[in-house]
């Protein structure tokens, strides 16, 4: 890649930030060149972010209808899945899966609520809400 081919298309996933990539510079040698963004990268980054947003959105609707617990919504909002939430909270996967159900979630002890809140980086009282 030559310095003139380094994309300067802007990228709304890193607004105002440039990243460095290696390209052939004006002295004929490969070196770091600042890039304001490449649309290809914007497409794939937004795709990954939107996939989690869609999951969180669906989980929120389900929770509103009373079909699942708010924990599922918060899990996807924190860009986690079941495996990751289990690791982050230090709980068995089957236990987390149970707590995704409204009935078991409602019975959670304050200690477990705190544990989930810590893993998700939110306050314990936020866990029961859909904010």
């Amino acid at each position: 890649m030559n310095i003139d081919d380094v994309p300067q298309e802007g990228n709304r996933t890193h607004p105002g930030q440039r990243k460095s990539i290696y390209a052939r510079t004006t002295n004929g040698r490969l070196g770091l060149v600042a890039s304001s963004g490449w649309e290809v990268e914007e497409i794939v980054t937004r795709q990954a972010v939107e996939a989690f947003e869609a999951l969180a959105d669906a989980a929120r609707k389900k929770a509103r209808r009373g079909e699942s617990s708010p924990l599922e919504y918060h899990m996807y909002r924190a860009r986690m899945d079941l495996a990751l939430l289990a690791q982050a909270s230090g709980l068995w996967r089957w236990r987390v899966r149970r707590h995704l159900k409204l009935r078991d979630f409602a019975r959670l002890s304050p200690a477990l609520r705190q544990r989930y809140a810590d893993a998700l980086g939110i306050a314990a009282d936020q866990l029961a809400t859909l904010d």
């Binding site: 990539i21 490969l30 990954a48």
Partner: peptide
Amino acid sequence: LYIGHLVRMQEEIGTGGGGFRF
């Protein structure tokens, strides 16, 4: 999602472009 994931690993995760080849 699968092919987008490949591109992210190749370009986006701080590789200097072209999956570290440059």
